[in-house]
Design a protein around this nucleic acid. Sequence first.
DNA 1: GGGCCTTTTCGAACCGATTCGATAATCCCA
DNA 2: TGGGATTATCGAATCGGTTCGAAAAGGCCC
Lengths: 342, 342
Amino acid sequence: MGNTAGVGQVTIKDVAAAAGVSVGTVSRYLNGFAISPQRRERIQAAIQALGYRGNYMAKALKSRKSMTIGVLIYTLTDPFSTTIVSSFQRVVEERGYSIILADYAEDIGKLASRIRFLRERRIDGLLLFPLLPTPLLLEAIRDCQKDLLPVVLVNEQIEGIDCDVVLVDNASASFRAVEQLVLNRHRHIAIIDGTEADFVSKERLRGYCEALAAYSMPCEKKYQAYADHSSVKAYNVTRNLLSMPEPPTAIFVTGYRMGYGVLTAIRDAGLAIGRDIAVTCFDRTEFIDLFRPAITVIEQPLDQMGQAAADLMLGRITRERAGPPERIQLNTRMLPADPVTR
Amino acid sequence: MGNTAGVGQVTIKDVAAAAGVSVGTVSRYLNGFAISPQRRERIQAAIQALGYRGNYMAKALKSRKSMTIGVLIYTLTDPFSTTIVSSFQRVVEERGYSIILADYAEDIGKLASRIRFLRERRIDGLLLFPLLPTPLLLEAIRDCQKDLLPVVLVNEQIEGIDCDVVLVDNASASFRAVEQLVLNRHRHIAIIDGTEADFVSKERLRGYCEALAAYSMPCEKKYQAYADHSSVKAYNVTRNLLSMPEPPTAIFVTGYRMGYGVLTAIRDAGLAIGRDIAVTCFDRTEFIDLFRPAITVIEQPLDQMGQAAADLMLGRITRERAGPPERIQLNTRMLPADPVTR
DNA sequence: GGGCCTTTTCGAACCGATTCGATAATCCCA
DNA sequence: TGGGATTATCGAATCGGTTCGAAAAGGCCC
């Protein structure tokens, strides 16, 4: 029956009645099937007149697709991941999907319950930003895969898991960055890295070490530090580095938050970036951009990453793409500093 | 009938059959109504055994509530708003709501279509971060209200709209900040503000002017600049200010992004923050924190804002709260610098 | 144990769409 | 213009829950 008065509750039945056709026919029209011209017109008129707006829930129930993708991010406050999400969203929305967003407050322990929450909403796919390759994560992913829920990972590689993933060339970007410093005659190059455990940090450290090795330079522990992705820790670490008997002449920082700390520490030590010391920093942010071209920035293709993730996801959801998981590796771009040579 | 094999498609019917009760009874159990102990046990066992997971879509369809709140943000990459969203999310999720997130890429023109998108998902409420009080926005909100869709605004006040809103004490915070500078004997205090049009910027400028007036100081145009919330523009503006014949001895910046530009410009001018020049900045970010206590920071209670917004929203959605719109104004906190006196 | 009141259970209708078999309309060509 | 093939339309069943009236069960008191 439906109601004509109520608030936005015009149903397909009302439209059918107003147009003098069956509900099935209206449905056909809505889904783009062939329909006779005069009926098409009457239906269009009825929709217009009644202000019909399809009921997404009914559609989702019947078609068993929620047209919703869950996005689980470690924290909503990190512009790096939200930028990726933003472009991901743009792409999937064009195909009618919306995203429901959750974060796990950088607490791996919450991952499972957050995923459960999303799955109760019957998401059609899951975009996951892991922090660490823990067994818990592995189990959670396996669980999704068991139920054929497509999962796409961003920036993480996990032993023993076959899962679509989007990455950047962490190791080789680091290699090139450090190589450039070496070529500019730096002999004491420090690295300030995230953690010992996460995939991205490990890869970036690997690139650093390989570059030094490639030029037969020692890879000394005293020039290697972890700052746990924290700007404050990076600040302290940098001050320590600068007060060494033989301080580094170049610092390679593997993340923008730590970059903040490094830049501030250098300033507070009374040194001039780009003259007294070279800095190469992963991630391009609005703030770090203010230091160009005094520092070298490794820019990650965030938009592309979001798009790639969206393509992977949509391919799986629609089953246009089957077969083994893909591992998409995108290239960073180095925005070189005016050289600081020794 | 249901299926026992398939992927996660156990229905309430399957549970009922397995427990030997009717679907209605299972539903009662699920919704916390009284039920006889032995049935309760059988139902629990059946749910456990089958791995039943309620179908959110079916529930939403029948109960006409999507248990979903739309969040429309100007850009996902702004940590200020995403922090608020994060705490908002935490609160509403406890009540079973999830959020679906969309941004409008700082393009007011897209607002209407973004809202339409969200409304097609049958959201139960809308949390909106406006940028400007435009007629378009006003119309969009009116449209929601007409259909009794609860709307909560963050950080915006619109003439002629009655709508729940969460704000901070922009004007009085500015007043106090500038007052403090005056008391430290600064006589040339510059303000770098967002735009001429947005509510928050206007309020912050008002506080600045009122503070100067309160101390009978001139409110000179030459010390007032807009930087459009951009760090690069703030950088340029600051350089200009510093090269005036009579440069300001204190700068009041009304947003963290512009703060980045100001701090960098001061550094590049060879001045020391907290010694040569005083800086007071709105918003506390990880980066700006690195400058404390050399600069004064006005911290907004982001978590509280999110919670307040959530409370407003849930109150409206559940109709526990009716009546006229509320305007919740929260207090910022000033983290004072070590004083730079003249 | 019977009568009466309360509480629990059952079963069916319903939410608003999709989808499919059956039926009606249309088209094409002889 | 008629017959066969094609295409559009109708109507009913269905998705997986909630909800409500009616029926059954349980509790209490005499």
